[in-house]
Design a protein around this nucleic acid. Structure first.
Lengths: 173, 173, 173, 173
DNA sequence: CATGAATGAGTCTTCATTCAT
DNA sequence: GATGAATGAAGACTCATTCAT
């Protein structure tokens, strides 16, 4: 991975996340990255390839985000960790996650399958704790994630610290 | 509003909602609507004008959705109605709402200010009911809305009836 | 068929025939035709479509060229007409025929099937006249056509009148 | 001539002959040859240089093809050898000759001057044999060559052995 | 000798928009 | 109101070529 390749990826991430994939021309990316337009195609084949490279780089972030929680067996800890999840994303990664959200809507990129493991482990936790509707409880957590993260990423001001505490108390974890 | 004008709006709604605003050319809209491309510009000025017309038509939907709830004074009824809100959108309007969600991400179209009145009235209701964190409770409801509606509009299969009951019971309303 | 459409076709014919299909950019065609580049695509879809339109227009020329000969039943007249064939192409059509030859080589465009009917009728004629190898005689005529026409179209100076007489006498027709 | 240089020449010959010079990118040549694109330019200067090298290598083939015939003085043997000419090209050289034909049309590469010596010697032969139109007879032979060779190189199935005999008998040589 | 990163000009094509009819 | 021809700018992508290593 040469320096220019990284410049391209960074520029593309920034632009795709903020202006949208379709609204960002490869020309704009090249200029922002300080490289010739052709280089994008030499390295990533085509515009979609550039996007794919971006998503591939980010796949690890998904995994490291979920890894800790999916391994857990104590139901209370599962729920606790699930709630903490969105709050642990460092602000430096916001651009990447904004891209994820944008793509879910701009293209019809998956999204559903990515939350599957989380749903499963949450359902298991709520079952263990004797909740009447564990599956729905799990979904609810995910919905809250989506709604809240979306708001944060779009720049809605939220006292994250306080909201985190609020949620943890609500679930007694 | 002539018939052709409506054809254009319908075609545009369908295409913008499903393929995205940027990914939809005026040419595609014209073909889907069965009119000449020029007519779009005669009626709506430019592509943005077409989008604006679409959003304007939908503004009533926002209002009629919120009207009933904002007028309410009984706190329990407010919460009940707020929860019911997303479930009362008829499926025939899903395309329109999908467009709303898409635009929130594809362009950076507001969204925040639209939920403001709902947030206010919910905060008031939770206060009345003695909740410790009325503002956060209100936000939470809105986050759930966003998360759930997003999932539904993207086609994730959900037993809406059951989920509605689940939420109502959770809030004892 | 508007005037500009014809300008495009004429310019394309000229350029494709003289510089080659691949070596001619749509930009060059547009400039030569005095139209915007986009118009080419509006009318012909893409560069290949432009070529196809050119070939379609020329298909009649093939037919009218062969029609007279294929209908003939007198063997001597068949051969006579076959020999005269290349000499009857008016110089105004040379560009079109040059394109045909060029395409046979630049792309791998048919060519074989187009001469089929001519081969058949010639074989029949030579049979009738008692030639020992009617099929080869027919092929020979076609080879002579190809070789001679190719030379003429590439600008090799030939006394066509004299050569025509020479050939007719050779076959006693 | 290193091995890689030969790889390049072979790949280029194959590609230029089958897909055309303009339609073949140096990138494609490099990949087919299993070398870096830069190497092509180090060795051959530019794309045209590569083509020139190809033609230079093939020049011997022209010479060895014509050498025997041009030296001949017996008119009947001249004609006999001329007729045999195209049939003596080994199939392994077809790709090279296909390139020759392609170039004659795709670029406006000579071809005329190359047949000059053959024309001269044939004219001489026909004169000696008392033909009325020795110059035209010579041209005719060349036209037949062109037409027949073209057909063969384009893959039209021909019984070469039989056709050769047919021609030799036609000229009583 | 050989590579592969890098470039700038150019290619085909699409797009929003205008305008005469 | 409505069409369809026409445009110019921009879009994604390709290509021959250069150069540092």
């Amino acid at each position: 991975m040469t320096e220019k390749q990284e410049n391209i990826l960074n520029a593309a991430l920034e632009l795709f996340a903020n202006e949208g994939y379709n609204a960002t021309s490869t020309n704009k990316v090249a200029k922002a990255a300080g490289v010739s337009e052709g280089l994008i195609f030499r390295h990533f084949g085509n515009k979609e390839g550039l996007l794919a490279a971006l998503l591939k780089v980010g796949e690890d972030r998904f995994k490291s985000l979920y890894a800790d929680i999916v391994m857990e067996s104590d139901p209370e800890k599962i729920i606790r960790k699930a709630i903490l999840l969105p709050f642990q994303v460092p602000e430096s990664e916001y651009t990447f996650w904004k891209l994820q959200f944008k793509l879910k809507w701009e293209m019809e990129v998956d999204g559903k399958e990515k939350t599957e493991p989380l749903l499963r482990v949450l359902k298991y936790a709520f079952e263990k704790l004797g909740y009447a509707e564990p599956e729905k409880e799990a979904s609810l957590i995910v919905f809250i994630h989506e709604g809240m993260s979306g708001a944060i990423l779009k720049g809605v001001p939220i006292d994250k610290q306080a909201f985190q505490t609020f949620l943890l108390e609500k679930y007694n974890v």
